[in-house]
């Protein structure tokens, strides 16, 4: 059980600034997601928490105590690797037992710990099998069991399900969420998939080239992005960000002072037949339909529920849902 805090942490690798003055707090028992593109610093944060790297400046606290002098082994933080790193020559049971056996813990305690963890992860029935005979999801759970069996204060996962196919990812992320709730431990989770991040996380940090751009619950970040960057990272299709000059074409007023661009989520764009924009493309996806619109040469996307009858080439009038317009200044910062 532990909270994890970064206080103004900076980390360089040679010339590269991997983390630039990063601060955040992860509360105890949270499912915290680090989200950003490749090389934005997510993996560096994990290494710093584990103690595999030392910060050049700033401080890392686990459970309120600075850990700069605590060795990786003493931090008692577990890690589930992207490739899971299960030992292929051992059964699932031996894989799970491994960390305890290595520490010379007595057999009775090991048995109790293993059965406790395997109950919570629902892997009791597959423990006798070697990893090669397990499905992707089962291997995942065994790897998590191995990480949790030694009762770490927190555990970290580096993009653990990106290798699975789309359908299995949808199932696995719900399963991960359930596991985290049942186990009740702080989980720091790295992903570059926005849908996955929003699905699993209690709290998340959006990173860009070593800097934290925004921290909050997925819903806060989705509804109130503080910059065009965060706005563009969450949601698919991404938020439309267009010049303020087009606001009137969507029946909006001038917006707050200093507004340079207007942001509208595709699902907040209402479309009706009439003059205004032209439909460039219709993508019917069954449950919803995505329209690509051409508004005076600017491309916009709208997502509609169901299967409305629009065809490419039609003219439509656009309107933005009440109170759902976002305004950004010239530097891309959100205006209240």
């Amino acid at each position: 059980m532990a909270s994890i805090s970064f206080r103004n942490v900076t980390k360089r690798f040679g010339e590269t600034l991997a983390l630039d003055d990063v601060s955040f707090d992860i509360r105890d028992n949270a499912f915290f997601c680090l989200f950003g593109p490749p090389l934005s610093g997510k993996s560096t944060i994990l290494k710093l928490i584990l103690g595999l790297e030392q910060p050049d400046a700033g401080e890392i606290l686990i459970d309120g105590r600075p850990v700069s002098n605590v060795s990786p082994a003493k931090r008692n933080v577990a890690m589930v690797f992207q490739n899971l790193a299960l030992f292929p020559h051992m059964s699932a049971l031996d894989n799970v037992r491994f960390p305890l056996v290595e520490r010379g813990i007595d057999a009775a305690t090991i048995r109790a710990r293993v059965s406790d963890v395997s109950d919570k992860l629902h892997i009791g029935h597959i423990l006798h099998k070697p990893p090669a005979q397990l499905s992707g999801g089962e291997r995942q759970r065994v790897a998590i069991a191995r990480a949790l069996v030694r009762d770490p204060v927190a555990y970290l996962m580096d993009d653990p399900i990106s290798a699975l196919d789309a359908r299995l990812r949808e199932e696995t992320r719900v399963e991960l969420r359930r596991i985290q709730q049942d186990m009740g431990k702080t989980l720091v989770y790295v992903t570059h998939d926005q849908e996955e991040a929003m699905s699993v996380a209690d709290g998340m940090a959006v990173l860009e080239s070593g800097r934290v751009r925004q921290i909050g619950t997925p819903e806060e970040l989705y509804r109130h992005p503080n910059s065009t960057y965060v706005a563009s990272m969450l949601g698919a299709p991404a938020m439309n960000v267009v010049p303020m000059a087009l606001a009137a074409r969507m029946q909006l007023g001038a917006g707050p002072a200093g507004a340079a661009s207007l942001g509208v989520r595709p699902e907040n764009l209402r479309v009706a037949r009439g003059p205004g924009a032209r439909i460039a493309e219709v993508e019917p996806l069954g449950g919803f339909t995505t329209l690509t619109l051409d508004l005076e040469g600017t491309q916009m996307r709208a997502t509609l529920r169901g299967q409305p009858q629009f065809t490419a080439g039609e003219d439509v009038t656009l309107r933005v849902d009440e109170g759902r317009a976002h305004f950004f200044d010239g530097a891309g910062q959100a205006l209240a």
């Binding site: 359930r178 929003m198 699905s199 969450l234 949601g235 698919a236 989520r265 699902e267």
Partner: peptide
């Protein structure tokens, strides 16, 4: 389980 993913909610 309830997943809230931006504009939609998936109920299990």
């Amino acid at each position: 389980a309830a997943e809230r993913i931006g504009p939609r909610i998936i109920l299990h």
